[in-house]
Design a protein around this nucleic acid. Structure first.
Lengths: 223, 223
DNA sequence: GCTCCGCGGATTGTATACAATAACGGAAGT
DNA sequence: ACTTCCGTTATTGTATACAATCCGCGGAGC
């Protein structure tokens, strides 16, 4: 539904490729020192022109991952455990607030549908399809917040996290997706229209997700 | 200090021009219906090429102000009182959190410097220079949050608000800048390292700012 | 009359060319 | 040796050209 800035399916495919490549480098731990990365360099590295590279760099700058200085190229800051936690901290800020607000407005029928979906997952023990529903849940909450700006911000970070997931998923084995239980706790609180419990459950959920992401990154780097 | 996305002094002057022009239209209340705005149209309207228009549209999309659809042009949503309040709500989310975290880390000497500055302002009754210190205060808090991501987001919204201020300031008479008292309350709480009071004062400050901005927008539209 | 296919135009996505500008280095002066 | 100035060069900012893609419309077939 949202025009996701980072992974717009196939819209701006080149830009997405560049973003992914740079994120891979960040997660792997390349660019340890304050490395410089010019648009031309990126264009050659990824086999595209400067234009999508430039747009990718602007996006990454807006996410605080790089610093752009005129006629200097992008300064890539070393990316560590702490940076990943910061990303989840901001995401948590957004989504906890969205959950709190959404509790009194969210469409209960949709909540029930998702509850059934997650219960089915928990029963079957399937892991793979869960991310799909996870995205659906976060999207539903964002849209139900009634604040377009908040929803947009959530979408931006959602795309970032999604891309990181894909990168990590392709390399790390033991990356465990969030447990259906956490999702169900959020959903049941929402169904009761209990803003406090719901937002609290969302906070815990994202804390888990944060720890999990850090573990996955460290696993990747130990190779 | 930050590479501000919207008003980078004179970096990307054309892009800034386009952003400002579009924001003017939004604040004035043009584009009431779901208007379409193509890149070519913008290029002609502002006398620049498509490239800076495109970048401006991407920024505005990331701020939730417009919707970009492939081969469809930008869909400009009507902008109302509620949208302005939403922007301040998100900003409040960022800055209240930053204030809370910064309380235990902020450099007290810098706080004292700002306290003196605001006390001088309050004495002299000068209004004009206050925005400059206002920006300094918010920037200091953002940088003291110790979270680069959070700081970046604050910078994005800060630029947006700053541009809106400039637009409004050029048209409305009675736009009153925030009272020095509000700033002093934040600063004194920070100086006590009282996270609760400081963040609470920041919340109140932004609530005032929000009301003030809405009033200014309505004043503009009544002409 | 209704549906489906295909084509033309409009619009974005990407590449390239040109202009502006700031970093870098070296030479001259002290 | 240090600093300052200036020219070169690297790099971004902007403009333009080209490619891909989607939307709408009209006509053919049923």
């Amino acid at each position: 539904m949202h025009a996701t800035a980072i992974t717009p399916s196939n819209r701006s495919a080149s830009k997405a490729k560049v973003v992914r490549g740079l994120l891979e480098g960040l997660l792997e731990g390349k660019w340890q020192g304050g490395n410089r990365f010019t648009e031309t360099l990126g264009a050659e590295a990824f086999g595209v022109s400067r234009t999508p590279v430039r747009e990718a760099l602007l996006d990454l700058q807006a996410l605080g991952l790089i610093e752009l200085r005129r006629n200097c190229g992008a300064i890539i800051h070393p990316f560590g455990e702490n940076d990943l936690r910061e990303i989840y901290a901001v995401r948590s800020l957004f989504e906890v607030e969205a959950t709190r607000v959404a509790a009194s407005r969210i469409n209960l029928a949709k909540v029930e549908t998702l509850i059934e979906a997650f219960e089915k997952i928990r029963g079957s023990g399937g892991i793979d399809p869960e991310w799909e529903f996870d995205r659906g849940l976060h999207q539903l909450i964002a849209d139900s917040s009634g604040n377009r700006r908040l929803s947009t911000e959530i979408g931006r970070y959602s795309s970032l996290v999604q891309t990181m997931r894909e990168i990590v998923g392709a390399r790390a084995q033991g990356i465990h997706s969030a447990s259906a239980d956490e999702h169900l706790e959020i959903l049941r609180a929402l169904h009761r229209r209990d803003a406090s419990d719901a937002s609290s459950a969302m906070r815990d959920h994202l804390q888990q997700a944060s720890d999990s992401a850090v573990a996955a990154m460290l696993e990747i780097r130990q190779r």
